[in-house]
Amino acid sequence: MIDRTQVLHVARLARLQLSDEEVGRMSTELSSILGHIETLAALDLSAVEPTAHVVPGAGRLRADEVRPSLPREVAFENAPDVADDGFRVPSPQA
């Protein structure tokens, strides 16, 4: 079960605004999904190692060599708001 308060808390962490209607709907839907997921709790996993990556032999490092950066106008091409040679955002304190 995930109630409205929890939905709101998680939405806040995820920087997701939800309307009142959405909070209610998400609470119902997520509860149903999490209810299904909770079957995992029945398994004894104490002696099992977690798997984060399935591919043995992968993983690598990069030599410390310079690659060209993007021209600034290309970096700004898709930006919603550019000012003073930077990406402009509203202030946190505003």
């Binding site: 970096a75 708001d81 000012a83 003073d84 040679d85 930077g86 990406f87 402009r88 955002v89 509203p90 202030s91 946190p92 304190q93 505003a94």
Partner: peptide
């Protein structure tokens, strides 16, 4: 680096910042 702009950088009546990556 986030550079907090002064009053001149106001958008929609609020102060803004500019990010340099």
């Amino acid at each position: 680096k986030t550079i907090h702009a002064g009053a001149s950088g106001r958008i929609h009546g609020s102060a803004s910042s500019v990010v340099d990556f």
